[in-house]
Amino acid sequence: MSNLDHGKFTRVTTLFHSLLGLDVFLLFFTGYAIMFNDELWWMLTLMGGASGVTAIHRITGIGLVALVIFWITLQIISSTGRSNFSKILPGKDDIDAFIQDIQFVLGRADERHPSARQFGGYKADEVPLLSYIGKGVVFIFSIELTLLAISGLLIWSKTGLAAMFQTKAAAMAFVTFHGLLGVIMLMGVMFHIFEHGMHPAFYPVETKAFIPRSMVPEHHGDEDEEPDTTGIERLSLSPSWRTVSTIFGAMTVIGIVSVLIGSIFDEGYPVPRELAIGGGPSSILLTVGINLGMVVLGVGLVLSMYGNVLRIRWEQQLEEEREQPTAADGGEPQTDGGQPNADDAESEN
């Protein structure tokens, strides 16, 4: 069993995922440096103050328009893309998977439902293209990114805004709307990073979104022999997993809660909707929390880059194996501690 598990995405999809991630992270950092300028003053300064931040936000905004339109076009004009549509529709399996996840957590089910399973292992053939979470992520992120791009362009265009709103304040209210819209995306991406960074079998990063399917060897056991388990019990836990996942989980929760609270207090950039005295922005706790949230995003950015480093290393290793066919397959593809060792790989069919 390769610890990469079965690949799912094409090379185009993995590259798109990395580019989209990079662009959205930059939009987050700049957009929320504006919205949470009380709490993230240092980020604002670091990125060149008000003019620097808004300039980067706009450039990456145009990048987002290009990426979103690219993806929509590709899904429509290619047969591979069109065949995806049925795979993102939620079905009964997804509800079952959600319920079984709760049962699994409570100890009433022995394993996660195939539609929830991130680590497929021996049972990888059962796992659909997208988990129930994956489908939800696709829906929420698509709607969010589309609305953000449209509202962002409207804000940008002076004529567009002037046509819609008579007063400055009304225009500012629309900017607020745009920023608040992004909060769902912000919280969702924090969860996404936790989900794909802290799975014990993949820690520190799940490579599915980075190493394309065409590069993942598939091993199929004897067809008549149904595997009982995914084989996760044969993998060794990374020594640092417990500590790191606990800290990172806490940071994710604090980050989500803080940006949510912050979005309620800070909403009326540049002026609060109700001119409350005191309130959120001056709170030290909130400042710490929002900054922790930004650290979570920063970790995500690093993991996304690391995923690409792993892809390059994996590619090189495949090359080497092709040059010397005598090399045993399933060697150690990754060098970090938590990964299963070569013994696991070789003992598999």
Binding site: R112, H199, P200, L237, G249, V253
Partner: peptide, 16 residues
Amino acid sequence: VFIHWAAFQRLAGQMR
């Protein structure tokens, strides 16, 4: 987040 956190703890418990 909490469901996944807890599920990950359980999966980790199944690992070596």
